[in-house]
Write a protein that binds this DNA or RNA. Structure first.
Length: 575
DNA sequence: GCCGTTTTCGGCCCGACTGTTTTCAGTCG
């Protein structure tokens, strides 16, 4: 069993222990164990073989033994027994807002309820309201929670959440009572998906701010309306929280509510080591002290500096080594949107795009790009109106003529998004591929191969001398389709060995390859290309989502091909 | 269940809101 699968089991164990009412620090140990495993750089097999698991901070004897057992045998009796002892319905109930492990345990222990259906029935009979610690309101909340579980339970794409958040933030900033306003949470950290929107405001007069927020036209339900915090449900199911804090607290609260939780834990630990207690309220000389430190800290930069750290951009605050880097002046200068000089993977009406070659060229010019690559589908992608050899060569000629005409300042590059056939062969022959500027190779069919088959298929495509870059590595569609089975590390290694690029597909539903892999991949020498995979002129703007993810992946300008000027890009293609 | 160079036991980040209570537990982030 690989480390991610094992991590999944450890998280599940944590959940089950919580439902059983175990010592909270015990299940937290499992939770943290799962996370540690996921972010492990070293080969798990090696760590197990050399008995070095316990040398990792957070992994003790008990966890090490369980990890080792799962790794070697794919089985764990402890886990199996635990699963058998907790009805699956109880786990599902955690999705219902207002129901946590303790209350679920009460419902189960007193009424014997073990499915959501039975919970619904008990609510209908009014039995839940009579339980100790429950009441009429909690019962109503549970009924609503069950009803909305489907619609509200899911996360939202960062791009769409950001579009909703933008006008709200602008509205907050325009209020007279508001001194400062920012969004926080996973939205500010540029996570690929967002659970809810967090807004933070500095004001000494919270009431009108709260009233404005809860009174927004797009609010379908007000779930909390307090003096410092309000929560609303927006049309479309997105939840939004607003916190209003006194101006001198703003920086601390912004840092706290930006998270991530794991990053905050590390920051608080660091503060404690330096003799301070850090909370969203500010810094105290020591834990337990009432008095806030009278330091003049007005920006996050100053807060980090107080803890002897360089500024850590919000995108990096995932406890992925950013604290250590900030300690040693090793936070990289991350790529910025303005560094992008063009993109390579885009479609036109020749295949399944919605805008013509010229419309795309014109839109790229508006974006100020030096070059725009066109990579329409190849013939095997029949469903996407893939180009035949003949049509591709015709397009190459069109592009050549358009460039010669000088009509657009943006130079068009001719490429292809060539299908990787199930065998790993490419959809076009070498002689055809030799006639385009570059080749993006992608998988669009037969997703169901085994991990070994899929990995070998992709590696074979990377070994083709005409291949320039690999498109959307895993084929995942966020919130909709899981990645296909493949060994990411092997593919990264093959790309490096063959001098090939892996694309960062910037389509907000893909954001593939995942940001968690980029830092170590780039350290191994992998070159990135940020591609919007645009099917419309508006879709070109997705490159911004790609830059976000590149930043989350610690990438700098020089690790990304499309930050380079046209001449260098052409030079790279004709190596 | 993990950790520790004062510690092998006694901690483990912490505060707001809600709904239930009548001083607080559970949930959430």
């Amino acid at each position: 069993m690989d480390k991610n699968a094992i991590a999944g089991i450890l998280s599940e164990i944590a959940l089950l222990l919580e439902l059983k009412g175990e010592n909270p620090f015990k299940f937290r140990a499992y939770q943290s164990g799962a996370r540690i495993l996921e972010s492990l750089e070293e080969d798990l097999a090696m760590l197990v073989a050399e008995g070095r698991l316990t040398s990792i901070k957070g992994i003790g004897k008990a966890l090490a033994l369980k990890i080792e057992t799962l790794h070697k045998t794919d089985q764990l009796e402890y886990y199996d027994n635990l699963v058998d002892s907790v009805p699956p319905g109880l786990v599902e109930m955690l999705d219902i807002p207002g129901l946590g492990a303790k209350k679920i345990k009460v419902v189960h222990d007193t009424l014997g309820i073990d499915t959501i259906e039975k919970l619904q029935e008990a609510c209908d009979k009014g039995q839940i309201a009579d339980l100790p610690g429950f009441g009429q309101k909690s019962q109503e909340k549970i009924v609503a929670g069950i009803k909305n579980r489907e619609a509200y339970g899911k996360r939202h794409l960062w791009w769409s959440a950001f579009e909703v958040a933008g006008p709200i933030l602008a509205g907050l900033k325009a209020l007279p009572a508001v001194e400062r306003a920012e969004h926080a949470g996973s939205l500010r950290r540029r996570m690929e998906t967002v659970g809810d929107l967090d807004f933070l405001v500095a004001s000494s007069d919270p009431q009108p701010v709260m009233d404005w927020f809860t009174g927004l036209d797009s609010v379908s339900e007000v779930t909390a309306h307090g003096e410092t915090k309000s929560s609303v449900r927006l049309e479309g199911g997105l939840q939004a929280d607003l916190r209003v804090v006194p101006p001198r607290q703003f920086v601390f609260a912004l840092h706290h509510f930006t998270g991530s939780k794991d990053h905050n834990v590390r920051m608080r630990q660091r503060a404690l080591q330096n003799g301070f207690s850090l909370t969203e309220w500010g810094l105290r000389p020591e834990s337990g002290s009432e008095e806030l430190l009278e330091e003049n800290i007005e920006s996050e930069t100053e807060l980090f500096r107080f803890l002897e750290l360089d500024f850590i951009p919000p995108e990096l605050r995932e406890d992925f080594g950013e604290i250590e880097a900030a300690e040693n002046n090793r936070i990289p200068h991350l790529v910025e949107a303005s560094d992008i000089r063009g993109v390579f993977h885009n479609h036109t009406t020749a295949s399944d795009g919605h805008n013509t070659l010229e419309e795309m060229a014109s839109a790229a010019q508006v974006l100020g790009w030096e070059y725009l690559g066109i990579a329409d589908h190849s013939k095997a992608s029949f469903q996407a109106n893939g180009l035949s050899e003949e049509r591709l060569l015709k397009q190459v000629e069109e592009i050549r003529q358009l460039n010669e005409s000088g009509k657009y300042q943006t130079r068009l590059l001719s490429g292809t998004e060539c299908d990787i056939l199930p065998t790993g062969e490419l959809d076009f022959s070498d002689s055809v591929l030799a006639q385009v500027d570059y080749v993006v190779v992608s998988i669009h069919s037969v997703f169901s191969q085994s991990e070994d088959e899929m990995t070998a298929r992709i590696i074979r495509a990377l070994e083709n001398p005409h291949t320039t870059m690999l498109g959307h590595l895993t084929g995942r569609i966020l919130l909709r389709r899981e990645p296909y089975n493949l060994n990411r590390q092997k593919i990264i290694e093959a790309a490096v060995a063959n001098g090939k690029i892996i694309e960062l597909n910037a389509n907000p539903s893909r954001l593939d390859m995942d940001w968690r892999l980029w830092r170590s991949a780039a350290e191994k020498g992998l070159l990135c290309a940020i591609n919007p995979d645009a099917h419309t002129t508006e879709g070109l703007r997705y490159y911004l989502a790609g830059v976000n993810i590149a930043r989350k992946g610690w990438l700098t300008k020089d690790q990304i091909l499309n930050t380079r000027p046209l001449e260098q890009v052409l030079g790279y293609f004709s190596r």
